[in-house]
């Protein structure tokens, strides 16, 4: 199945069907999640109404890690199997992951001010997420800096794998160090600490973000395939014109 999907022509056909389904699912789940977040869930007994920021902050944080993980797997695909779709996937994932990380940082900051009294502290969780965002920016810059797509793909794949060291640091920073940021409260041994009335909007929004991110990733991959076709045809046309002139 994966081998067949890894064929660009098959990928274009299958993703053409999947894309509208994911987009509609993201819109419906997003609307339902917002309804739950604003109208059908209580305020927190300690954090009051600011708990509603959690419904975008936490899904954005999850997806920032998920998209970097997708990039790391794609980087392996580029370096080990040298599959061109792996590089396409990595390239399409980078700006989406960077955007989710930015959302995570900004919403976290806006949540931190009323709860902690400050927009920012240099604790391990916040700093490691900032490093994640800088890694995304570095990867996007490296792609733009190198003209040769093959060289750029390998260089970016290596940088991505080096940066993957930061993923467990982000995840476990709240356990390894003493941080102002709270510890894991959803996926933890012993079950979630969050009340089910708040878990429902959180999971609905997380699903909406996941569908939205996946739709954007597929759309980005389709565009990247087109971009490479345009590049190849432009080179072919230039060669043809050169031969005709000679």
């Amino acid at each position: 199945m994966l081998t067949r999907l890894a064929n660009p022509a098959t990928f274009m056909r299958v993703s053409g069907y999947a894309l509208p389904v994911l987009a509609v699912a993201a819109a419906l789940l997003g609307a339902y999640g917002l309804y739950l977040a604003f109208l059908a869930s209580p305020a927190d007994y300690q954090q009051g109404e600011t708990v509603r920021i959690m419904y975008i902050h936490v899904p954005a944080a999850w997806l920032s890690l998920l998209f970097y993980s997708i990039m790391a797997v794609s980087a392996l695909g580029t370096l080990v199997w040298r599959h061109p779709l792996a590089d396409v996937s990595q390239r399409a994932a980078a700006p989406i992951g960077a955007a989710f990380t930015l959302v995570c940082l900004v919403t976290g900051s806006l949540w931190g001010k009323p709860m902690w009294g400050t927009y920012w502290v240099w604790d391990a969780r916040l700093t490691s997420v900032l490093v994640l965002f800088l890694m995304y920016c570095g990867i996007l810059t490296l792609w733009r800096a190198l003209d040769d797509p093959g060289r750029a793909a390998r260089a970016v794949a290596i940088l991505t794998l080096v940066g993957a060291v930061n993923i467990p640091i982000v995840k476990f920073s709240v356990e390894w160090w003493s941080t102002l940021h709270q510890g894991a409260s959803v996926f933890r041994v012993g079950g979630p600490l969050v009340d089910p009335a708040m878990l429902r909007p959180l999971f609905a929004m997380a699903l909406a973000f996941t569908c939205f991110g996946t739709a954007l990733h597929l759309a980005g991959m389709r565009t990247e395939i087109l971009r490479r076709r345009v590049r190849r045809l432009t080179l072919l046309q230039a060669e043809r014109l050169e031969r005709a002139a000679a």
Binding site: H57, T107, P114
Partner: peptide, 22 residues
């Protein structure tokens, strides 16, 4: 419910607004 957001409303709406823009 959100009418009670009071003094924290600016933080909540800013977070959702910036997320929407992105």
């Amino acid at each position: 419910m959100m009418a009670e957001a009071g003094r924290h409303a600016v933080f909540i709406w800013s977070a959702y607004g910036i997320t929407t823009v992105i």
